[in-house]
């Protein structure tokens, strides 16, 4: 998947930190995941892993995810999650 444009450096950093957590903590080593791969297909993560991901994001970027933000559009893949984190955490 080719990105339309390269994300700005801050965005890239947010994305890298999320991606690193997903790869290191949530997936088995042999699974590879891309920034636009569907995390919510049910085949990669289960609901517990998604909750861990949310907890990580809150702690790492020091903000509280509002219940109304807990939606597919914000968690579908690492790219949209990083976007959301930037908007919501004011980074």
């Amino acid at each position: 998947m080719v990105a339309d444009r390269l994300p700005p450096p801050a965005a890239r950093e947010v994305e890298d930190r999320i991606m690193d957590f997903v790869r290191r903590e949530l997936l088995s080593p042999e699974v590879n995941v891309d920034r636009e791969d569907d995390l919510l297909s049910g085949d990669l993560l289960d609901s517990v892993a998604v909750l861990r991901l949310a907890a990580f994001v809150e702690e790492e970027f020091e903000f509280k995810i509002q219940p109304a933000d807990f939606v597919i559009e914000n968690f579908q893949n690492v790219a949209v999650l990083a976007d959301y984190v930037q908007r919501a955490s004011g980074r």
Partner: peptide
């Protein structure tokens, strides 16, 4: 109901 909706209760309700 898709797995994505089931993981995101606010998406599920909508």
């Amino acid at each position: 109901l898709t797995p994505a909706a089931l993981m995101m209760p606010a998406s599920l309700s909508s």
